[in-house]
Structure formats: structure tokens, C-alpha cells
Amino acid sequence: DEIHIHFNGVTIEFRGLTEEAKKALEEAIKRGASEEELKELARRLIK
């Protein structure tokens, strides 16, 4: 299970995320999180 985020022309790929983690990332994107914020969020979620 993986998710691809297209962000300002950059694709960020995450693997092994739970549904909750995906929802958290989607919410962050909707509120306009920066690419760095998304990566940091993903790091926290994957652990």
C-alpha cells in the first residue's frame, strides 16, 4: 500500500501507511502544508 503526493511538480512517495496516516497527510495537504512539513509528518507517521 503506497501513496503518491504530487506537490509543486515533485512526487513524494510513501509506502506502508495506515489509513489514519493517509488521512493525516491528506488533511495536511488540504490546509496547505509545505513539502518539508509533509515529509516530517510522514516520518512521524511511519515510525
Rank of each mutant, 00 (worst) to 15 (best):
F7M: 12
F14S: 02
L41V: 02
A24D: 05
I12C: 03
R31P: 00
E27D: 12
T18D: 10
D1L: 14
E19M: 14
I46T: 07
G16A: 05
K30A: 13
D1I: 12
L17D: 01
E2Q: 12
N8S: 04
E37V: 06
A21I: 14
L38K: 00
E26H: 10
I29A: 07
E36A: 10
I12M: 04
R15G: 07
E37N: 03
I29L: 09
E40R: 09
S34N: 10
A28F: 10
L38F: 13
D1F: 15
A21P: 00
R31W: 14
D1E: 09
N8H: 08
A42P: 00
E26T: 12
A28M: 10
I29W: 15
H4K: 11
E20V: 08
G9R: 01
I12G: 02
E36H: 10
R43H: 06
K30C: 05
A33C: 06
E13K: 15
R43L: 14
I46K: 06
L38A: 01
R43A: 09
E40K: 07
E37S: 05
G32L: 03
R43I: 09
I12T: 03
E26C: 13
I46A: 04
F7Q: 02
V10T: 10
L41G: 00
S34T: 12
G16H: 12
E20G: 10
E20F: 12
T18Q: 06
E27N: 10
T11H: 07
E13S: 15
I46S: 09
L17Y: 03
A42G: 02
E27P: 00
V10F: 06
E36S: 08
L45C: 05
A24M: 13
H6S: 11
I12A: 02
A28Y: 11
N8D: 08
R44K: 08
L17M: 08
A33R: 02
D1N: 12
V10P: 02
L45P: 00
I3Q: 06
S34C: 03
H4Y: 09
I3H: 08
I5K: 01
A21S: 10
L38C: 02
E19S: 13
T18M: 03
G9Q: 02
I5N: 01
A28R: 02
L41C: 02
N8M: 06
L41S: 00
L45Y: 13
L41R: 00
E20A: 10
A33S: 06
F7W: 07
L25Q: 00
A42E: 01
A28D: 00
E35L: 15
L45G: 01
T18S: 12
K23F: 13
L38S: 00
K39M: 15
E19Q: 12
E37K: 03
I12V: 08
E19C: 10
E26R: 10
K23M: 12
K23E: 09
K22T: 06
K22V: 13
L25K: 00
F7K: 02
F7I: 14
V10C: 10
A33V: 13
I12D: 02
F7T: 03
A21M: 13
K23V: 11
T11M: 07
L45N: 01
L38E: 00
S34R: 04
A28L: 10
F14M: 05
E37R: 03
S34E: 04
A24Y: 12
N8A: 07
T11D: 06
A21C: 05
